[in-house]
Design a protein around this nucleic acid. Structure first.
Length: 386
DNA sequence: AACGCGGGGGT
DNA sequence: ACCCCAGCGTT
């Protein structure tokens, strides 16, 4: 393997790592946590779990997984579902393109693979939302495919095992770690059909329980004897941390626009691409920092928004809610909500088609809304008012 | 190769 | 209030 050379590994060190790999499986047999998807051999269920587990921790995923499988128990059910139901089931999990891609992929599987989840990793890899990691994880766990699954946890474990000084996500180092992962899988998986599944899950479990980012429990590690990071005395130096960029901050004026007669609330569907794509949300507009701090300026901005975009004039301000902060990976947002009464029934007709709706309080629960907007609404409804 | 994309846990 | 975590698609 030429790719292995990127890791600067001596042959004796590589042999020691191969020799330690079987100990990983014995450790996993005793340390594996119980998870609902580990009870299943259903490739669809395993696929759903792996997509949910991208960027999301196990404890967060469990209730979503169980609800999803109860409502959409197989790939045909998912393919037949409306996107609105798919997004509602995903509401609060984040990275909503994961759900939209899973939905599209299910339709491809039904249309082009006779509703059978592809067993070949390179075929599975072609589906929307499926990259190298997910293809390897699902096909190894569900079908015994002999491919190593390298996620962020595994990348950290491997980086420490070889005391990698360079960024493990760079192309050359990434190929090196993939090659090492493949070598370890061959050394531990044996000929057993379950071998690749157990090995891949063991590596991920090791990263989650022992080889954790901040304070690794090296004394518990089954690979410790062969770990160059541990031998260096400072395992947490590997992999090197990347410098983070400053996160910008946006202020948004948000309209809780209530119909004066019915009390229904105006919702708008967000664009099909970009942040929180396809979710329903309150009308909102970005304001500068000065306007954010000035109630009259926010009301003016919202009045203009309601008039120009929704044809609603003569909105009456009812009250201001407390600003709500929300943090995304790449953006901090402060929502400044204003409750308004509008008597726009005449202009309510089908303007904007399916892009906007007047919705009763009960019906709002059926829509998929961003978490930050849920925070605003829970404030609205918490204070003895409807 | 760089960037966009949510939300939650630990300290 | 600050730190950290992360796979895939797009550009």
């Amino acid at each position: 393997m030429a790719d292995l050379e990127a890791l600067g590994l001596g042959s004796a060190e590589l042999e020691a790592l191969r020799a330690a790999a079987p100990r990983l499986l014995r450790w996993f047999a005793g340390a594996a946590r119980a998870m609902p998807w580990r009870e299943s051999r259903d490739p669809y269920a395993i696929w759903v779990s792996e997509v949910m587990l991208q960027q999301t921790q196990v404890s967060t995923v469990v209730p979503y997984y169980e609800r999803w499988l109860a409502e959409l128990p197989d790939v045909r059910a998912l393919a037949a579902a409306e996107e609105a139901q798919v997004l509602k089931l995903w509401e609060g999990l984040g990275y909503y393109s994961r759900a939209r891609n899973l939905h599209r992929a299910a339709r491809v599987v039904v249309a082009e693979h006779d509703a059978q989840v592809p067993r070949d990793p390179s075929v599975f890899r072609q589906l929307p939302g499926v990259g190298a990691y997910t293809a390897a994880a699902v096909t190894s766990i569900a079908f015994g495919a002999r491919v190593a699954a390298v996620d962020g946890n595994v990348r950290r474990v491997l980086s420490r095992l070889v005391a990698l000084e360079r960024d493990p996500t760079r192309a050359r180092e990434s190929r090196g770690l993939e090659a090492l992962a493949a070598a370890l899988l061959e050394a531990s998986a044996g000929d057993d059909l379950e071998g690749p599944s157990r090995h891949n899950q063991a590596m991920m479990e090791l990263g989650a329980l022992v080889c954790v980012p901040r304070a690794p429990r090296c004394e518990q590690c089954p690979m410790g004897a062969a770990c160059l990071g541990l031998r260096s005395g400072e395992p947490t130096r590997f992999p090197p941390r990347k410098a983070r960029r400053a996160v910008p901050h946006h202020d948004l004026a948000v309209a809780i626009a209530l119909d004066a007669r019915s009390g229904e609330m105006l919702l708008e569907k967000r664009p099909e691409r970009g942040l929180l794509a396809g979710l329903w949300d309150l009308p909102q507009t970005r304001v500068d920092e000065a306007a954010a701090a000035d109630e009259a300026a926010r009301v003016l901005a919202l009045s203009q928004l309601l008039a120009e975009r929704y044809g609603l004039r003569g909105a009456r301000v009812e009250r201001q809610l407390t600003p709500v902060g929300h943090v995304f990976t790449h953006l901090r947002v402060t929502l400044h909500p204003t409750v308004l009464r509008v008597s726009g029934a005449s202009s309510r007709a089908s303007e904007g088609g399916e892009a906007r709706r007047w919705v009763s309080r009960a019906a709002i629960a059926e829509h998929a809304l961003p978490t930050a907007t849920r925070k605003v609404l829970s404030q609205l409804w918490s204070a003895a008012k409807g």
